[in-house]
Design a protein around this nucleic acid. Structure first.
Length: 1031
RNA sequence: GCCCGGGUGGUGAAAUGGUAGACACGAGGGACUUAAAAUCCCUUGACCUUACCGGUCGUACGGGUUCGAGUCCCGUCUCGGGCACCA
């Protein structure tokens, strides 16, 4: 019976739905397993084939775990607030909720079409008020807490106020604004309500602050750093300026250290962890004050991660932009310094970076005093030091830092060795921490580990420095000047923010007349009638920072998730998604989770145990080549004139570079004929050349490009036309219309003959291209190919060139999974996506090769049928058959565990090929294979499972057990190597002794040939592997 | 500049330090067919040699460790991603 996915797949999808096969309960005696996909933003473009890659992998894992006896949670939902819907609303006036609804319906349809085992009863949407009620609720908790450094966790703000009222804030160790003053209990108690509230904002974990933000006037919105590219907004390309604005801010810096530490406890991909570490950017070091000679009231503070190198300082370097520079510069140096400042101000950061090998800088004339040894060191300015970071000053240690070394080298400053292990200081810096200190006063003879605490202690005692940990991480701006996001549940009273009570949640997004900022630049919410709440909304990452808990208990209206549900599901066991969310989503989620854990609201510090990044599927664009006039000249030359040179006689060939001497495209000596190639529309040009030809006494033949286009695949017709003209007597002749054809497209396979600038390269829709061959019938229906002809190759094919690009509509390289499913079936689509390669790798989509998977499914299916009849034998399987089965069980089981889905597909193919050559149709072999196929091709598996006589779902079958004994063989074909190179093979018993194996190998003719009578130096025998003979 | 990954046939790729290129695609040849589709069989890293047998070279490049290296180590080149002079 023929395999017809179009019939069986919808049937089983309906059956699964009706029987609630994928509904999961929050209980049971099975162990739990939580598989999560990063949820999608439902864009208007729908899903393309790149999106489901991760979902297929997670679906396979989910179904596999279920077959192994786990209670598996595998949910899906939508991150449905966001800017694209809002921009669409601005354009069309349609409420974003409506378009979002439509987009979600489209996504759902596409996702269902692929046969995922999602429990749709748990679907969540961040834009749903029942959902964002709890996003707002968490926001309120953040507002009502501060980070206490003694408890090392978030504590209620009431704890803080009680303490301050009791004894002031001097003894409070908490994360707060840098400018928080020390106040006494009396001062606090004397404050008005307003003053107290404003004071507390310095402690709250979310608070309104004044922050420099990327303000985009055109979008009326603040953009995050990663939404700004080259000074313009990523979406729309509008200019962006730095602007100080009142913004809600999240005090994520309070959690910097814990977020860093937590990375060591989770099994996430190295690249994500590394990115998060870099983002947090912890540097442990010291801050040291250098006094300035002759300026009693000036000092230069530097932060260094290598305070141990302080005795090697040979100069101070300041960023040229610093105000201090002007103060310190001596009159003698003023001209040079000002010149340098001017020059460096004109340099872009890119230039500053590109030139980092060549040091530039100017001496200010001033000297600083090294507090460690009293040494007088010159103060320079150089633009390798940036004002924006730290204090904008560096203590330069040429022996330990390459940039400082370059600088010293350039300007002849001393390089002071500080460690006895430093080497090659005359050619480069040596940043080693090994060895013992020299030239280093206080720390002479010490090791790095001893020197750092010694120095810091001394600096602190002397009051000239202190140990300091610096983070790159900044507090996260939480406000967006947008409409389509969660309203911030706060109200301003006399410039003081108050958050709502839980009973007043959700604060529902109000209706507005337009989705634009107001004329006065206020956010769209200012347009809402009677709205007296905060005007900004929350950013995209708010709703996605806790959604994994909502899936556990999606309908709860008493809590964001019940304790019971959390106690059961705990945390995500396996999280899969794109690495582009490395920081935005994954770091902020961890931050919120740490916070919720501090409050005892969630069971674990980290929400996801394991995380895998799927690689991006890139687009594979196809291109066609549209001929310019120049192409036809080259064509005539190559395809028509050259083959007939003898017949036509000598020809002068014109062209751009000979325009002065030769007016015509081609000139024949025979019969005074000249040829001009041009479009029939160029009436003026034709007339001009006709006149010129008359006065030159030439006979003119005009070949219209439209005519040539029509006859492009028939060079003999063109040659005949020329032949007629050569033999004729008319002074003027031309090809005749009517011409309907306007454009010529040239096959890429022919392009090597023609110059690239004779054609225009254009994107063509990949959906009408198969294996880089353009489907001409489909192409002619497109506007771009209306009235076009194609220059095809000898086989009549039009081939396209290709390039890997991002998958996008504008590049015509988007492939819709629905189309692939319609042609090959969902099972085939699923398996093919997996077969492409490791899921972590980025790769271009190319449907080429899908026939291999499609063929496999048909072969697998055919094992169960004899003609039209389902035919399965209950006979005992042979040893060979069992070996094939168990080999497959082992490989597939191991490979799913390590997420190597592509090799799983290969193993299925191998097993199928083997069993087919064994003509096996035995239930004992095929039924376990059906179960194993379930995660990959669930529809086919369910169909065959029922054909095999079962009435329950194959999803609840038991994963077959592997039996090692069944894959054992009596003999093994051993490779025989001579000096590590394969020279022969020999069949030997598996349990052979080393001595026997050696003897058998040496007895071989091929081995004797290499030995040439000598005894081998050594024989290596690895049981079950190989034999290597060393000569 | 720094950090993290990669680099294997025409293509996607496979390979716990142990027979490099499994499994597929594409290509070529053949069978079946009125024909096409579908299906099946054979060949397919490069080169040399050949009737058969066989040989040389091959996992970006150069070294090293090892009986044995795609795999481990050092250096170089190169592609991709991240960070942006983070002191």
């Amino acid at each position: 019976m023929e395999y017809r996915p179009g019939d069986i797949e919808p049937k089983w999808r309906k059956w699964w739905k009706e029987n609630h096969v994928y509904q999961v309960k929050n209980q049971g005696d099975k162990p739990k397993y939580y598989v999560l996909d990063m949820f999608p933003y439902p864009s208007g473009a729908g899903l393309h084939v790149g999106h489901p890659l991760g979902y297929i992998a997670s679906d396979i894992l989910s179904r596999f775990k279920r077959l192994q006896g786990f209670n598996v949670l595998h949910p899906m939902g939508y991150d449905s607030f966001g800017l694209p819907a809002e921009q669409y609303a601005i354009q069309t006036g349609q409420h974003p909720a409506i378009t979002t609804e439509q987009n979600i319906a489209r996504y759902r349809e596409q996702l269902e079409n692929i046969g995922f085992s999602f429990d749709w009863s748990r679907e969540v949407r961040t834009s749903n008020p029942e959902y964002y009620k709890w996003t707002q609720w968490i926001f309120i908790q953040l507002f009502n807490h501060y980070y206490d450094l003694e408890a090392d966790k978030a504590m209620p703000i009431s704890t803080l106020t009680a303490r301050i009222a009791q004894s002031g804030n001097a003894t409070v160790r908490a994360v707060c604004d840098d400018d928080t003053p020390v106040i006494s209990a009396a001062e606090w108690n004397g404050m008005s309500e307003k003053e107290q509230q404003l004071f507390l904002l310095k402690y709250r974990i979310t608070f309104p602050g004044e922050e420099f933000v990327n303000w985009c006037p055109a979008l009326g919105s603040v953009l995050s750093n990663d939404e700004v590219k080259d000074g313009v907004s990523e979406r729309g390309g509008h200019p962006v300026e730095r602007k100080l604005m009142k913004q809600w801010v999240m005090r994520i810096t309070a959690y910097a250290d814990r977020l860093l530490e937590g990375l060591n406890t989770i099994d996430w991909s190295d690249s994500i962890k590394e990115q998060q570490r870099n983002w947090i950017g912890k540097s442990v070091g010291a801050s040291v004050k250098f006094s300035v000679e002759g300026f009693d009231n000036q000092s230069i503070e530097v932060f260094t991660t290598r305070v141990d190198t302080i005795y090697g300082v040979s100069l101070m370097v300041l960023a040229p932009e610093l105000d201090l520079v002007k103060v310190l510069t001596t009159d003698a140096q003023r001209n040079a310094v000002e010149g340098y400042i001017k020059w460096s101000a004109g340099r872009s950061e890119i230039e500053r970076m590109a030139d980092s090998k060549k040091a530039t800088g100017v001496f200010t004339g001033a000297y600083a005093i090294n507090p460690a040894n009293g040494a007088r060191v010159p103060i320079w300015i150089a633009d390798y030091v940036l004002a924006g970071y730290g204090t904008g000053a560096v203590m330069a240690v040429p022996s330990g830092d390459q940039r400082d070394w370059n600088f010293a080298q350039e300007f002849n400053l001393p390089v002071i060795p500080i460690l006895d292990s430093q080497q090659g200081l005359d050619t480069a810096a040596d940043p080693t921490k090994e060895g013992h200190y020299i030239n280093s006063g206080l720390i002479n003879g010490m090791t790095y580990a001893e020197a750092v605490p010694t120095l810091i202690q001394w600096l602190e005692k002397e009051g000239i420095g202190r140990g300091k940990t610096q983070y790159k991480l900044r507090n996260a701006v939480f406000s967006r000047q947008r409409y389509w996001g969660e309203p911030v549940p706060a109200r301003w009273v006399d410039d003081v923010p108050y958050v709502l009570e839980e009973k007043d949640l959700p604060l529902v997004l109000p209706a507005v007349d337009k989705y634009l900022p107001t004329e006065s630049g206020e956010p769209p919410l200012a347009r809402a009638v009677g709205w007296d709440y905060e005007l900004s909304t929350m950013p995209g990452w708010a709703g996605s920072s806790w959604y994994f808990y909502r899936y556990m208990d999606p309908k709860n209206d008493q809590a964001f998730c019940s304790r019971e549900a959390m106690d059961y599901w705990q945390q995500v066991d396996f999280y899969i998604g794109g690495s582009e969310h490395a920081v935005g989503h994954l770091l902020y989620s961890r931050f919120w989770n740490h916070f919720l854990h501090d409050l005892g609201l969630v069971p674990n510090r980290e929400f996801a145990k394991k995380l895998v990044n799927q690689g991006m599927i890139q687009g594979r664009s196809n291109f066609v080549y549209r001929a310019k006039e120049r192409f036809f000249e080259e064509y005539l030359m190559i395809k028509v004139l050259k083959p007939c040179l003898d017949e036509f006689g000598p020809i002068m060939i014109g062209g751009a570079e000979f325009e002065e001497e030769i007016k015509y495209d081609f000139a024949f000596e025979t019969n005074n004929l000249v040829i001009e190639v041009t479009s029939s529309k160029q009436l003026d040009k034709i007339e001009r050349i006709r006149t010129a030809a008359l006065s030159d006494g030439k006979r003119l033949l005009v070949l219209h490009t439209e005519w040539l286009t029509q006859h492009i695949n028939e060079p003999t017709v063109v040659a005949e036309k020329i032949r007629q003209a050569l033999g004729g007597k008319e002074d003027f002749s031309a090809t005749e219309g009517p011409f309907r054809i306007e454009h010529l497209f040239v096959s890429h396979s022919l392009m090597y003959k023609y110059s690239p600038d004779a054609v225009t390269k254009l994107h063509v829709d990949v959906n009408i291209v198969d294996n880089d061959v353009l489907d001409l019938d489909k192409a002619r229906k497109l506007p771009m190919f209306a009235n076009a002809n194609f220059k095809v190759d000898a086989e009549g094919k039009y081939t396209c060139s290709w390039e890997v690009e991002k998958m996008s509509k504008s590049k015509f390289n988007v492939v819709n999974p629905d189309d692939v499913v319609a042609e090959y079936g969902a099972d085939c689509f699923r398996m093919f996506e997996m077969f492409l390669g490791p899921i972590t790798d980025a790769k271009p989509w190319n449907t080429k090769g899908i026939t291999g998977v499609s063929g496999f499914l048909r072969k697998f299916w055919s094992m169960f049928f004899e003609g039209e009849q389902f035919s399965i034998s209950d006979a005992e399987p042979t040893r060979d058959e069992l070996r094939v089965l168990h080999h497959c069980i082992k490989k597939v089981t191991d490979d799913i565990e390590r997420m190597s889905m592509n090799t799983c597909v290969s193993h299925f193919m191998i097993a199928t090929n083997d069993l087919r050559s064994l003509k096996c149709n035995k239930r004992a072999v095929l039924e376990p294979l059906v179960i194993m196929l379930t995660p990959f091709g669930p529809h086919m598996a369910e169909e065959l499972w029922h054909q095999l006589g079962h009435t329950d779902s194959v999803c609840d079958a038991a994963w077959p057990a592997f039996d090692e004994a069944l894959i054992k063989t009596d003999t093994k074909e051993y490779p025989i190597q001579i000096n590590g190179k394969l020279r022969a093979t020999i069949e030997l018993p598996t349990d052979i002794s080393a001595a026997d194996a050696e003897a058998a190998a040496l007895a071989l003719d091929q081995v004797q040939k290499w030995l040439e009578g000598q005894a081998p130096k050594k024989v290596v025998f690895v049981p079950g592997r190989m034999i290597n003979i060393v000569i």
